[in-house]
Amino acid sequence: MSNNKSTPPQGGASDNRAATPMEHLQRLDVAIHVEDLTVSFDNTPVLWDIDMEIPKGVIMAVIGPNGAGKTTMLKSILGLTKPNAGQIFIFGKPAEKQRRLIAYVPQKASVDWDFPISVLDMVLMGTYSNVGWILRPSKASKQRAIDALKQVGMLAFKDKQIGALSGGQKQRIFIARALVQEADIFLMDEPFQGVDLATERAIVEILHDLKERGKTVAVVHHDLQTVREYFNWVFMINVRRIAVGPVNKVFTEENLRLTYGGKSGFVERS
């Protein structure tokens, strides 16, 4: 290190200056850092100047009314939507190079369930990002897919065509597909939409299991009653950022009113 003269002095007790923005971004305990993100469709802003960060290892609910930009937020992080402005960093590096660290669970309606593939085929798709172009998934990949199916309680259905499944089962295999990706960050778009209570509990269990393993999870969520129970972090959004932080600090009546414009009908119980 001594022969590299251009290196500035590193860290140390004597270094009391505040971290520069760049150093702050490179902190590894921040999974996702979003800065000045603005997205619009035909000049109608969907996201207005969003600044936020998701610490590593939290399970975060993304809540807000319809049209608040929740899905757009996830899609921007994933690079599926082109923002008008703003930057996104994943584990301190520009998002473009880091997207493989993210597993995405889209909304159920986003795919064609009549497509001629089996449940196992679909879950195997989660391994593709590690397999790369042209090559086929290995035996080990198949085993991972089977393990993931077991984890979501869907192994018995592995040879069924995906269209034969119920709503909750479809959601379970979507999650199984994300699990085999061996990602560090999970972005889920309404995984509880139209599923029965048993499936909801099963999904929550998987979320907590991911948290135990140090993964970071962000979930678009609609049921305000269960936010406290399921999540430890919350991001409240309505085109603008309303609040982000630990559930017990920011999930307040005041913030809910700001998010839903007083129409939430939700009375906070404390």
Binding site: L78, I102, Y104, S110, M122, G132
Partner: peptide
């Protein structure tokens, strides 16, 4: 993958 779920294909690289 591209026909079935283009978004997922994009995020898978």
């Amino acid at each position: 993958l591209a026909i079935f779920d283009p978004n997922y294909a994009a995020t898978s690289g």
